[in-house]
Amino acid sequence: MQWLPYVVAYAGIAVFLIAVIARFFMWARMPIHVRWELYPVAHDAKRARYGGSYFEESKWWTKPREVSLLGELKVMVPEILFLVALKEHNPKLWIRSLPFHFGLYLVVACTVLMLGTGVLGALSTSLLEGGFGTLLRGLIVATGAAGMCLAILGALGLLQRRLTEPGMSTFASGADLFNLVFFVVAFGVALVNFLLFDRDFSQTTSFTAGLVTGDFAAFSGAGGEAFLAVLTVVLLSVLVAYIPLTHMSHFVGKYFAYHAIRWNDKPLLRGDKGEAEVNKMLGQKVSWSAPHIKGEGKKTWVDVATEEFKKK
């Protein structure tokens, strides 16, 4: 049965990856839609600073549109790392949400470091000796422990806010509360495991490394210790699988919310490839039933949009 935690971990990771990739493709493959941007648009090289656009130039369609990736990064990186929009508009929630999100980032960093350790160790154990190995192990402990603590603190803070802030408590569903409790429990168990039995993360590192190398070693230690280690793996694996199946998958959606909608200011000029896509959509049949449309699934968008009202 020593392979059981490995199977659970693989399953958790597989569900996560499949769900994230499926979500990504769902958003990426959605049909063209009308423009619905919101300024400032971060990639406008000259005008993002104050929220301006290329529409500020006369005969804008004759001028080159300067798109700055750097401009986007200047907004995206602080937003992802420090949640600046929340800081600006909802500081009370931000002081709870930032540790939560930052804690998760640190846990992810810790996992990557443990995987890296596993790969390096599999190549040659000598790679993990000396100062580099010590640094790596130190970083794993630091990111892991800090990550868990911050995520738990943040989740508790968010839970408190969701239960007590009038606007949030009346809107909260069972799942909204459960999600936060789940984070607290999963990371709480992992933290206890760390504090009691795995202070140097060696058990967790060798388990994570086993996921890469296929060396499915059993958790060492007496019954209680092994049980806690397995429980940690199971809870975290289920959590990993659960996240992308909920609205917490907003980390995928947010990319499209910005790039496909809020910042999508790309004009469709005459002769552009996108015209064919629009024409395809205009050829779709509408079934809206109101008296001024009566599509009935028979008329296309072109039909309903060019009907003559004048003579009626």
Binding site: W27, M30, P31, I32, H33, V34, W36, A85, L86, H89, N90, L93, S97, E165, G167, M168, F171, A172, D176, H247, S249, H250, G253, K254, F256, A257, A260, I261, M281, Q284
Partner: peptide, 19 residues
Amino acid sequence: WTFLQPLMMSMEHCAKCQT
């Protein structure tokens, strides 16, 4: 098709944070 993606984005991801 005109608003499908913006609509779905707004249906799926609200965190009810009231910001």
